[in-house]
Protein backbone atom coordinates (compact mmCIF):
# COMPACT_ATOMS: atom_id res chain seq x y z
CA UNK A 1 0.00 0.00 0.00
CA UNK A 2 1.24 3.49 -0.83
CA UNK A 3 2.28 5.06 2.42
CA UNK A 4 2.69 8.54 1.07
CA UNK A 5 3.27 10.16 -2.28
CA UNK A 6 3.71 13.89 -2.18
CA UNK A 7 2.57 15.01 -5.63
CA UNK A 8 3.53 18.62 -4.84
CA UNK A 9 7.07 17.52 -4.18
CA UNK A 10 7.03 15.43 -7.38
CA UNK A 11 5.91 18.36 -9.57
CA UNK A 12 8.28 20.73 -7.82
CA UNK A 13 11.14 18.33 -8.53
CA UNK A 14 10.11 17.86 -12.14
CA UNK A 15 10.09 21.58 -12.85
CA UNK A 16 13.00 22.60 -10.66
CA UNK A 17 16.09 24.38 -11.96
CA UNK A 18 18.59 21.79 -10.73
CA UNK A 19 16.74 19.06 -12.64
CA UNK A 20 16.64 21.05 -15.84
CA UNK A 21 20.26 22.03 -15.52
CA UNK A 22 21.19 18.49 -14.57
CA UNK A 23 19.41 17.11 -17.62
CA UNK A 24 21.04 19.68 -19.85
CA UNK A 25 24.45 18.87 -18.42
CA UNK A 26 23.89 15.14 -18.93
CA UNK A 27 22.86 15.79 -22.53
CA UNK A 28 25.88 18.02 -23.11
CA UNK A 29 28.31 15.45 -21.74
CA UNK A 30 26.62 12.72 -23.77
CA UNK A 31 26.58 14.65 -27.04
CA UNK A 32 30.15 15.92 -26.65
CA UNK A 33 31.45 12.47 -25.69
CA UNK A 34 29.62 10.70 -28.49
CA UNK A 35 30.81 13.23 -31.08
CA UNK A 36 34.41 12.85 -29.91
CA UNK A 37 34.02 9.07 -29.73
CA UNK A 38 32.79 8.92 -33.33
CA UNK A 39 35.92 10.76 -34.49
CA UNK A 40 38.19 8.53 -32.39
CA UNK A 41 36.26 5.44 -33.45
CA UNK A 42 36.53 6.31 -37.15
CA UNK A 43 40.31 6.53 -37.04
CA UNK A 44 40.65 3.46 -34.85
CA UNK A 45 38.40 1.55 -37.26
CA UNK A 46 40.55 2.65 -40.21
CA UNK A 47 43.59 1.67 -38.14
CA UNK A 48 42.23 -1.87 -38.02
CA UNK A 49 42.49 -2.06 -41.81
CA UNK A 50 45.96 -0.49 -42.02
CA UNK A 51 48.66 -2.41 -43.89
CA UNK A 52 51.11 -1.30 -41.18
CA UNK A 53 51.35 -3.76 -38.34
CA UNK A 54 52.10 -1.21 -35.61
CA UNK A 55 48.99 0.81 -36.53
CA UNK A 56 46.82 -2.30 -36.22
CA UNK A 57 48.49 -3.05 -32.87
CA UNK A 58 47.77 0.42 -31.50
CA UNK A 59 44.12 0.11 -32.57
CA UNK A 60 43.85 -3.30 -30.95
CA UNK A 61 45.45 -2.24 -27.67
CA UNK A 62 43.20 0.82 -27.45
CA UNK A 63 40.07 -1.28 -27.88
CA UNK A 64 41.29 -3.89 -25.46
CA UNK A 65 42.24 -1.34 -22.80
CA UNK A 66 38.99 0.60 -22.78
CA UNK A 67 36.58 -2.30 -23.20
CA UNK A 68 38.22 -4.60 -20.68
CA UNK A 69 38.16 -2.15 -17.76
CA UNK A 70 35.18 -0.67 -15.89
CA UNK A 71 34.01 2.74 -17.01
CA UNK A 72 33.83 3.90 -13.40
CA UNK A 73 37.49 3.01 -12.87
CA UNK A 74 38.42 4.94 -16.02
CA UNK A 75 36.46 7.92 -14.73
CA UNK A 76 38.28 7.74 -11.37
CA UNK A 77 41.67 7.50 -13.04
CA UNK A 78 40.99 10.53 -15.22
CA UNK A 79 39.52 12.63 -12.37
CA UNK A 80 41.66 11.64 -9.38
CA UNK A 81 44.86 10.04 -10.68
CA UNK A 82 45.62 12.08 -13.78
CA UNK A 83 46.06 15.46 -11.98
CA UNK A 84 48.51 13.80 -9.56
CA UNK A 85 50.48 12.23 -12.40
CA UNK A 86 50.47 15.28 -14.61
CA UNK A 87 50.27 18.76 -13.14
CA UNK A 88 48.81 20.09 -16.39
CA UNK A 89 45.56 18.46 -15.30
CA UNK A 90 45.60 20.08 -11.85
CA UNK A 91 44.47 23.49 -13.13
CA UNK A 92 41.06 25.03 -12.70
CA UNK A 93 40.15 24.24 -16.32
CA UNK A 94 39.96 20.57 -15.39
CA UNK A 95 36.35 20.51 -14.22
CA UNK A 96 34.18 17.43 -13.59
CA UNK A 97 32.63 18.15 -17.00
CA UNK A 98 36.04 17.98 -18.70
CA UNK A 99 36.95 14.81 -16.82
CA UNK A 100 33.66 13.13 -17.72
CA UNK A 101 33.99 14.25 -21.33
CA UNK A 102 37.54 12.88 -21.65
CA UNK A 103 36.80 9.61 -19.86
CA UNK A 104 33.54 8.86 -21.65
CA UNK A 105 34.98 9.84 -25.06
CA UNK A 106 37.91 7.48 -24.65
CA UNK A 107 35.67 4.71 -23.36
CA UNK A 108 33.00 5.18 -26.00
CA UNK A 109 35.59 5.55 -28.79
CA UNK A 110 36.48 1.90 -28.36
CA UNK A 111 32.86 0.79 -28.77
CA UNK A 112 32.25 3.18 -31.67
CA UNK A 113 35.30 1.88 -33.52
CA UNK A 114 33.75 -1.60 -33.56
CA UNK A 115 30.44 -0.22 -34.84
CA UNK A 116 32.15 1.84 -37.53
CA UNK A 117 34.34 -1.11 -38.49
CA UNK A 118 31.25 -3.29 -38.98
CA UNK A 119 29.67 -0.49 -41.05
CA UNK A 120 32.72 -0.14 -43.29
CA UNK A 121 32.92 -3.91 -43.76
CA UNK A 122 29.27 -4.07 -44.77
CA UNK A 123 29.88 -2.09 -47.97
CA UNK A 124 30.39 -4.44 -50.91
CA UNK A 125 34.04 -4.16 -52.05
CA UNK A 126 32.85 -4.24 -55.68
CA UNK A 127 31.81 -0.61 -55.31
CA UNK A 128 35.34 0.36 -54.31
CA UNK A 129 36.65 -1.50 -57.35
CA UNK A 130 34.22 0.38 -59.59
CA UNK A 131 35.36 3.68 -58.06
CA UNK A 132 38.98 2.82 -58.73
CA UNK A 133 38.16 1.85 -62.32
CA UNK A 134 36.72 5.35 -62.78
CA UNK A 135 40.00 6.76 -61.52
CA UNK A 136 38.73 7.88 -58.11
CA UNK A 137 41.28 8.08 -55.30
CA UNK A 138 40.84 5.98 -52.17
CA UNK A 139 39.90 9.07 -50.14
CA UNK A 140 37.21 10.03 -52.63
CA UNK A 141 35.76 6.53 -52.67
CA UNK A 142 35.73 6.49 -48.89
CA UNK A 143 34.03 9.87 -48.63
CA UNK A 144 31.51 9.59 -51.45
CA UNK A 145 30.69 5.89 -51.49
CA UNK A 146 31.81 3.86 -48.49
CA UNK A 147 31.25 6.19 -45.54
CA UNK A 148 27.65 7.21 -46.41
CA UNK A 149 26.66 3.56 -46.67
CA UNK A 150 28.56 2.64 -43.52
CA UNK A 151 26.73 5.44 -41.70
CA UNK A 152 23.40 3.83 -42.57
CA UNK A 153 24.51 0.60 -40.95
CA UNK A 154 26.02 2.38 -37.96
CA UNK A 155 23.02 4.58 -37.05
CA UNK A 156 20.95 2.06 -35.03
CA UNK A 157 23.84 0.79 -32.88
CA UNK A 158 25.03 4.39 -32.44
CA UNK A 159 21.57 5.26 -31.12
CA UNK A 160 22.05 2.51 -28.58
CA UNK A 161 25.41 3.99 -27.66
CA UNK A 162 23.83 7.39 -27.11
CA UNK A 163 21.39 5.85 -24.67
CA UNK A 164 24.14 3.92 -22.92
CA UNK A 165 26.27 7.04 -22.64
CA UNK A 166 23.40 9.09 -21.31
CA UNK A 167 22.96 6.58 -18.54
CA UNK A 168 26.71 6.40 -17.95
CA UNK A 169 26.74 10.13 -17.22
CA UNK A 170 25.02 9.24 -13.94
CA UNK A 171 28.34 7.66 -12.93
CA UNK A 172 29.83 11.12 -13.11
CA UNK A 173 27.69 12.15 -10.15
CA UNK A 174 30.42 10.45 -8.14
CA UNK A 175 33.02 12.94 -9.39
CA UNK A 176 30.59 15.75 -8.46
CA UNK A 177 29.21 16.45 -11.91
CA UNK A 178 25.81 18.03 -11.24
CA UNK A 179 23.72 15.90 -13.57
CA UNK A 180 20.16 14.67 -12.99
CA UNK A 181 20.95 11.95 -10.50
CA UNK A 182 22.92 14.40 -8.33
CA UNK A 183 19.96 16.77 -8.32
CA UNK A 184 17.62 13.93 -7.35
CA UNK A 185 19.86 12.76 -4.53
CA UNK A 186 20.31 16.24 -3.14
CA UNK A 187 16.58 16.85 -3.13
CA UNK A 188 15.88 13.46 -1.56
CA UNK A 189 18.39 14.06 1.21
CA UNK A 190 17.02 17.53 2.00
CA UNK A 191 13.39 16.39 2.08
CA UNK A 192 14.20 12.96 3.47
CA UNK A 193 11.77 11.61 0.88
CA UNK A 194 12.97 9.35 -1.96
CA UNK A 195 10.08 8.26 -4.26
CA UNK A 196 9.20 11.67 -5.76
CA UNK A 197 12.72 12.94 -6.56
CA UNK A 198 13.80 9.60 -8.04
CA UNK A 199 10.61 9.16 -10.07
CA UNK A 200 11.12 12.66 -11.48
CA UNK A 201 14.70 11.76 -12.47
CA UNK A 202 13.42 8.61 -14.14
CA UNK A 203 10.96 10.60 -16.21
CA UNK A 204 13.75 12.89 -17.37
CA UNK A 205 15.73 9.96 -18.73
CA UNK A 206 12.63 8.53 -20.42
CA UNK A 207 11.82 11.87 -22.04
CA UNK A 208 15.35 12.40 -23.37
CA UNK A 209 15.57 8.87 -24.77
CA UNK A 210 12.13 9.19 -26.41
CA UNK A 211 13.13 12.36 -28.22
CA UNK A 212 16.32 10.64 -29.29
CA UNK A 213 14.42 7.69 -30.73
CA UNK A 214 12.35 10.01 -32.93
CA UNK A 215 15.50 11.77 -34.14
CA UNK A 216 17.13 8.44 -34.86
CA UNK A 217 14.32 7.19 -37.06
CA UNK A 218 14.42 10.47 -39.01
CA UNK A 219 18.14 10.11 -39.46
CA UNK A 220 17.71 6.53 -40.68
CA UNK A 221 15.25 7.72 -43.29
CA UNK A 222 17.70 10.41 -44.35
CA UNK A 223 20.22 7.67 -45.10
CA UNK A 224 17.84 5.42 -47.02
CA UNK A 225 18.54 5.56 -50.71
CA UNK A 226 15.29 5.35 -52.51
CA UNK A 227 13.63 7.88 -54.82
CA UNK A 228 10.51 7.78 -52.65
CA UNK A 229 12.49 8.28 -49.51
CA UNK A 230 10.83 6.92 -46.41
CA UNK A 231 7.43 6.64 -48.01
CA UNK A 232 5.74 3.36 -48.73
CA UNK A 233 8.44 1.07 -47.55
CA UNK A 234 11.46 0.93 -45.37
CA UNK A 235 14.68 -0.67 -46.40
CA UNK A 236 16.00 -2.67 -43.53
CA UNK A 237 19.66 -2.28 -42.77
CA UNK A 238 21.51 -5.58 -42.54
CA UNK A 239 21.86 -6.84 -39.00
CA UNK A 240 25.03 -5.86 -37.20
CA UNK A 241 26.18 -8.14 -34.43
CA UNK A 242 25.12 -6.59 -31.16
CA UNK A 243 27.86 -5.44 -28.86
CA UNK A 244 27.07 -6.27 -25.30
CA UNK A 245 26.97 -3.52 -22.73
CA UNK A 246 26.66 -5.77 -19.76
CA UNK A 247 28.49 -4.49 -16.75
CA UNK A 248 29.94 -1.33 -18.26
Amino acid sequence: MLASFDSHLFWAALSSGPYWRGALLALEVTAASLATAIVIGFFVALGNFSPRRWVRSVAWIYNWLFRATPTLLQLFIIWYALPQLWTGFAGSWFTPFMAAWIALSLNEGAYMSEIIRAGLLSVDPGQELAGRALGMKRRQILRRVVVPQAVRIAIPPTGNEFITLLKLTSLASIISLHEILTSAQELAVVKFQYPEPLLAALLYYLAIVSVLMVLQSRLERRFTWSSHRGRGRRIQAPAVPAISHDAR
Binding site: D124, L129, A130, A133, L134, G135, R144, V145, Q149, W225
Partner: peptide
Protein backbone atom coordinates in the same frame (compact mmCIF):
# COMPACT_ATOMS: atom_id res chain seq x y z
CA UNK B 1 45.35 7.72 -67.13
CA UNK B 2 42.43 7.73 -64.66
CA UNK B 3 39.16 6.65 -66.30
CA UNK B 4 40.79 6.18 -69.72
CA UNK B 5 40.13 2.45 -69.66
CA UNK B 6 36.47 1.88 -68.73
CA UNK B 7 35.45 -1.28 -66.92
CA UNK B 8 32.06 -2.97 -66.61
CA UNK B 9 31.71 -5.68 -64.00
CA UNK B 10 29.69 -8.86 -63.79
CA UNK B 11 27.85 -7.64 -60.70
CA UNK B 12 27.34 -4.03 -61.95
CA UNK B 13 28.91 -2.51 -58.79
CA UNK B 14 26.86 0.66 -58.89
CA UNK B 15 27.21 3.01 -55.94
CA UNK B 16 24.14 2.08 -53.89
CA UNK B 17 23.91 5.46 -52.16
CA UNK B 18 23.55 7.36 -55.42
CA UNK B 19 20.80 7.72 -58.01
Amino acid sequence: GPGEVGMVFQRFNLFNNMS
